[in-house]
Amino acid sequence: MHQLLDVLASGVHDTKNQLFCAEAHIAETEKKHGIDLSEARYAIEAAAQRLSRTLTAYHLLRDGASLAVVPTLAEDLCSEIAIDQQKHLARAGIVLEVKCEVRDAWPLDRDLIADVLNNAVQNAGRHARSKIMLHAWNDDTCLHFRVEDDGSGFADLATRGTGLLVAERIARLHQRQGKHGSLTLSNNGTLGGAVFELCLP
């Protein structure tokens, strides 16, 4: 069982290294010729994210992986999501607005949460008409991330695909002082469409 996981992980690792070589090559070409190939790089990164996500999902659904929690700044996380998604969404006429009101470093699994949020923004991008908002804030006990769009909302709030199941698992694995994280989906947010909200203790 673990041997299989090791084989998969090592394959994913090698592939991501190869993808990095491709992305670096493109970035170099862009600079040399002053052209914009960011969509090609976006496709490469999306492919790598998809691979990692598959491995993570396998981990989480099969043998209950453990988190790698490090102190993280929500602001940096939001900036990275913006770097990953803003330009790509703009090509489809969608504006990604980021609002971060968190000042304290927060203990969380930076890479998994970044992936969950990237995924949520990508999903929103498929349904939004013109706007997506990523909003981070905290109260005394919880750090909140909310992704909402101005689309028609979730058709069915009860059924959740693999992506959302994994997101929920990841949220719940975040535990602190006896509390655990959660994922809430709803409709009719401030932009009128779907609302995806993570709460991490």
Partner: peptide
């Protein structure tokens, strides 16, 4: 990806780490 697990546990960490591919 497993390097995250190392960073989260150990006392002596790099200033930061970044996972390939990255822009």
């Amino acid at each position: 990806q497993s390097y995250e697990q190392v960073v989260a546990a150990v006392e002596l960490v790099p200033d930061d780490y970044i996972i390939k591919p990255f822009s």
